[in-house]
């Protein structure tokens, strides 16, 4: 039994971010892996889980979510090896500090050495990131510029869009994964969902074909016509 939990979907879930937990649970079940999918709402205790999902949110709710999580045992659980997959505001909350509501600096959870300040422009649009041999495709909508501390590895290199700073996107730090591609990024990138699932399980997972593969190919074609080995191999044109 694998237990996964969405953290504060009532505060962090502006862009359909609940889709990520849904996709991971669905792909696990399709392979016969039993899954328990939990939610922690703002008045709940943090449930015990192998994987926590964090979504995006508006300024006020982001600040509130950070307070609620600071008072929870999330930090201890991550240090004990629990995995975290965070997008957008969730990414910012995990770091040392972030700016909301003007330029007020707000202290984050400090689970990773990154810092986010408010950029001069908002970044709204499709995003495409090279992550190893794969492309990550999605949509970003945020005003943050995130700087990674020394030794913190980015999730990938930005091909299209801004991500952290126009050069790289997100991070991989210990058991934590994060990207600015918000919303159901695991739905658009089935390979990423499976890589996350395999990491949490500690073993490889069987291939699984679904309509999501067609969506991924289409988005790769639209966002990066000639750059993906994966896609070129499948598309003779």
């Amino acid at each position: 039994m694998l237990t996964i939990a969405s953290l504060l979907p009532d505060l962090l879930g502006t862009y359909g971010d609940a889709g990520n937990a849904l996709v991971l649970a669905s792909r696990a079940r399709a392979r016969g892996i039993s899954i328990e999918l939990l939610e922690m709402r703002r008045d709940d205790e943090l449930p015990e889980a192998s994987l926590y999902f964090m979504g995006g949110g508006e300024d006020g709710p982001q600040r509130l979510a950070c307070e609620v999580l600071r008072a929870s045992s999330l930090g201890a659980r991550v240090r004990d090896g629990a995995n975290v997959f965070a997008v957008c505001a969730g990414l910012q909350i995990l770091g040392q500090h972030f700016s909301v509501e003007g330029d007020d600096e707000f202290t984050g959870l400090g689970l990773v050495d990154i810092a986010t300040r408010r950029g001069t422009t908002r970044s709204v649009g499709d995003i495409c990131v090279q992550v190893g041999d794969h492309l990550l495709v999605g949509f970003e909508n945020h005003g943050g510029v995130t700087t990674l501390g020394e030794g913190v590895r980015a999730l990938g290199d930005v091909r299209n869009g801004r991500g952290n700073d126009g050069v790289v996107d997100g991070f991989r730090a210990g058991t934590m994964w994060a990207t600015y591609a918000h919303g159901p990024v695991l739905a658009q990138n089935p390979w990423l969902a499976d890589e996350l699932l395999a990491t949490v399980l500690g073993e490889d997972v069987e291939p699984l074909s679904s309509v999501a593969d067609l969506l991924y190919e289409e988005r790769c074609r639209v966002l990066s016509p000639h750059s993906s080995f994966e896609v070129r191999r499948k598309d003779p044109h």
């Binding site: 849904l22 669905s26 739905a187 658009q188 679904s210 309509v211 999501a212 969506l215 289409e218």
Partner: peptide, 17 residues
């Protein structure tokens, strides 16, 4: 339609694209 079909498939709804 592929975004929609993927969403619906993950909701266990039968789809035709």
């Amino acid at each position: 339609r592929l975004d929609l079909a993927t969403r619906l498939a993950y909701a266990d709804v039968s789809v035709k694209v």
